[in-house]
Amino acid sequence: MVQLLFEDIFILQRIDPDGKKFDKVSRIEARSEQFDMYMQLDINTEIYPMRVGEKFTMVLAPTLNLDGTPDTGFYLPTNRKTLADKFEYVMHGKLYKISEDSSSGQTAKVEIYASFGGLLMMLKGDPSNASNFELDQRLFLLIRKV
């Protein structure tokens, strides 16, 4: 079975907080229900439009193989069943930075950054949620609206 790195349901709070800069890509701000994580994510809204207030499940997985065999790094599209089948929007990228954010209050938060070919994700929350992540990890981001 796939060992998911993270799974939660988010509520989209804002789109393009700094103004719309790109035609096809928007930056969304979302907050999760279960772990109270804050997320910024670039999404290709041309092919996957999103609106404020929508709820969606987001999953971060190290591989798409359902049996949990690790990703080889080479992408070979096949007809096999994958984890992606259950989701509407799937991105592949790399975790490039983990940092701590001690600016807000005493409880330190950890920020996890990933880049999906230039589409960035920033996930901020409690350190305990970050222990599964490793630097330079290949990540699949899967989204499904609920």
Binding site: N44, I47, Y48, L64, G73, F74, Y75, P77, A84, F87, E88, Y89, V90, M91, H92, G93, F116, G117, G118, L119, R138, F140
Partner: peptide
Amino acid sequence: IDLPTPALIKPIELWTGKQ
């Protein structure tokens, strides 16, 4: 040339310019 994994896998395969 080794083709990288596309940044977007679903709904359609798409690569970004950064790739």
